[in-house]
Nucleic acid binder design. Structure first.
Length: 272
DNA sequence: TACCAGGGCCTTT
DNA sequence: AAAGGCCATGGT
């Protein structure tokens, strides 16, 4: 199958390793591979274009363009955000970041696993979780386990995944999603505040995890997940007071700020 | 209100 | 080599 070529710009590396998704790995300097929508997707970054392999042009148009938020014009958003000096720095530091539109259940479950955990370990847990309970796609790749499958597991089944005390949270989330008590469509349709409360009915889902699931998995672009890093960023950069422009593009602004404070030497130095 | 719960990768000391 | 923190939340 010939690769799909696109001249739409985004940076796979910063996008995949910004902490919004946990399913991609680097394969060499400019190639990244991961499981999306039960398919093994390989993306290669060339000088002025990206190559997509593993999916058909029809799949690219119908599913993956939305997944990569390619219908959103980032130049407009970034131009406006850059009026804020902190955002200008954050955007300049990782200009190719994009907000991914992921599967609701996968993000919900992934961010339950993420709590009080670091990104390499989260990635490893999700890999093992998929290998154990997902469907085999090829030798090295497995789909993310469905809520229906996970809902029928026991605490002992999940023990080898070593998610510790989070196991019972995962089970409660899976059971509520599988039963339809919590639905992606409802989470998406509700206003943000009500959507957060809706997700917080799940054991182990609090404000932070709810915002992540809504932002990354339910199209809530005004969601603004605040973990220790973001709180630090808001304190240091804005003296605790988030400016209006950041509120306007909350989710995307958060993505830039999070990546900036996590990775930029200058920003790190400011934390001392 | 403060602390603790699995566990392991990574950073700092 | 050892210690502490990590895209948190619920229970005591």
């Amino acid at each position: 199958m010939n690769p799909i070529v696109t001249d739409i710009f985004f940076d796979p590396e910063t996008t995949f390793f910004s902490g919004q998704c946990f399913r991609f790995t680097a394969k060499g300097e400019n190639t990244f591979q991961g499981v999306v929508k039960n398919k093994v997707l390989t993306i290669t970054k060339e000088k002025d274009r990206l190559l997509f392999e593993g999916i058909t042009p029809a799949e690219f148009e119908s599913d993956f363009a939305h997944y990569f938020d390619l219908h959103t014009d980032y130049s407009v958003i970034k131009a406006e955000l850059k009026n804020d000096p902190v955002m200008a720095k954050a955007i300049a530091f990782a200009p190719g970041l994009r907000l991914l539109h992921q599967d609701f259940w996968e993000t919900l479950c992934s961010f339950i696993i993420s709590q009080n955990n670091n990104i390499p370990r989260i990635t490893g847990i999700i890999e093992n979780f998929s290998r154990a309970f997902g469907e085999k796609i090829d030798k090295d790749h497995f789909s993310f386990p469905t809520a229906q499958v996970v809902a029928n597991l026991t605490l002992d089944d999940l023990a080898p995944i070593k998610t510790g005390f989070r196991v019972k949270y995962i089970l409660d989330a899976a059971q509520k999603v599988a039963a339809g008590t919590v639905q992606a469509e409802t989470a998406q349709a509700l206003p943000l505040t009500e959507a957060v409360a809706y997700l917080c009915q799940i054991k182990g889902v609090g404000e932070k995890v709810a915002h992540c699931a809504l932002l990354y998995g339910a199209n809530h672009t005004y969601a603004f997940p605040q973990d220790v890093w973001m709180k630090r960023a808001v304190d240091i950069f804005y003296n605790g007071d988030v400016p209006e422009i950041v509120h306007k593009y909350a989710g995307i602004a958060q993505l830039f700020l999070f990546y900036y404070i996590r990775n930029c030497e200058e920003a790190m130095a400011a934390t001392v």
